[in-house]
């Protein structure tokens, strides 16, 4: 369990982290979401003891990271944004070094390493030089490093960044396996990634917590303003008027209107309570405006912030 209270970090006059508080429960996967530069990495670096906060406290399983750093760090496995790999060592040499650093007992070492290597699927590359591995394998070695010493808490900073889609799927699978018996914090700026693996989400923006919620609550709040994209053949104005007439539609705006081929694209904003999609279909058909494309728009992270912060 991690308790974070009123965390502040100044870089000169700039506040990278401004009064963040949240708690991570045991065996929970917490998504840490925010755009680039929102303060995710800084917060994680403070939690793991790499940086000290300007003020505020971090308690890991009851141990303050500043006052009892050794006890607190024992419970944390950390994969920073840039995995801390020695490129001139083989995977096994490297993991053995991490065992030395984390003071894993000699008797347990062999068994533990075998387990970790199997779990993150790096058995075939165990004797290869880290510098010669692909990015996906390097990331896995990074995760293996975090797992050494059986920490109860895993902190993974952007674990899928820069990987190809197949590798991303594999890493996500791995994280889901790990989540069974670890508390996990994952940072990301991709919503879908967080949605897939996390129980709860902390969203931060400009160094502040924008929202803390479970995924289901968050989706419900997000669906408060559902957005649709509609493209059709015909006059844009006519279409907009037809859509606006439908009860429940709060707004309708032109995105693209091409007079030559006579095609238009509009975005529609509707109330939550009513599903306006059937009505729109009939209204368009009545007005003789053939629908070319009709789909709901996934909210972007920006929009989530906008909607959450209400501005």
């Amino acid at each position: 369990m991690i308790e974070i209270n009123n965390l502040v970090k100044h870089y000169g006059d700039k506040k990278a982290v401004n009064d963040i508080s949240f708690t991570v429960n045991d065996d929970e996967v917490l998504g840490f979401l925010g755009p680039n530069g929102a303060g995710k990495s800084t917060t994680m670096n403070i939690i793991t003891g790499y940086l000290s906060s300007t003020s505020g406290t971090v308690k890991v399983n009851g141990h303050d990271i500043l006052e009892e750093p050794e006890l607190a760090k024992k419970d944390i496995g950390y994969l920073p944004e840039l995995p801390p790999l020695y490129l001139d060592m083989t995977v096994l040499e490297y993991l053995n070094f991490i065992c030395d650093l984390k003071q894993v007992k000699r008797s347990e070492r062999k068994e533990q390493l075998a387990k970790i290597i199997a779990m993150v699927k790096i058995v075939d590359v165990a004797d290869r030089l880290i510098g010669n591995l692909s990015k996906g394998y390097k990331q896995r070695v990074g995760i293996a490093q975090a797992l050494v010493g059986n920490p109860s808490i895993l902190i993974l900073d952007e674990p899928t960044v820069g990987l190809d889609p197949n590798q991303i799927i594999e890493i996500r699978k791995l994280i889901r396996t790990l989540a069974k018996d670890h508390s996990v914090i994952i940072s990301s700026h991709i919503l879908s990634e967080i949605q897939e693996v996390c129980d709860r989400v902390v969203i931060i923006n400009k160094g502040r917590v924008a929202a803390i919620d479970t995924i289901s609550d968050l989706s419900r709040r997000l669906s408060g303003s559902s957005k649709l994209l509609l493209s059709f053949k015909g006059d844009a104005k006519k279409g907009i008027n037809a859509v606006r007439a439908i009860p429940g539609v709060s707004d309708c705006k032109i995105r693209i209107s091409d007079q030559d081929i006579h095609e238009s694209e509009v975005t529609i904003q509707s109330d939550l309570a009513t599903d306006v999609r059937t009505s729109i279909f009939y209204a368009m058909s009545k007005n003789n405006l053939p629908i070319l494309e009709f789909r709901s728009l996934d909210p972007t992270l920006e929009e989530i912030f906008l909607s959450i912060t209400g501005s």
Binding site: N6, V8, D19, S52, T54, S55, G56
Partner: peptide
């Protein structure tokens, strides 16, 4: 409370 926090924060840095 915020301003109190801020000053205590600066104190920590100064102290370190």
């Amino acid at each position: 409370k915020k301003s109190a926090n801020k000053s205590s924060g600066d104190n920590r840095q100064k102290y370190l």
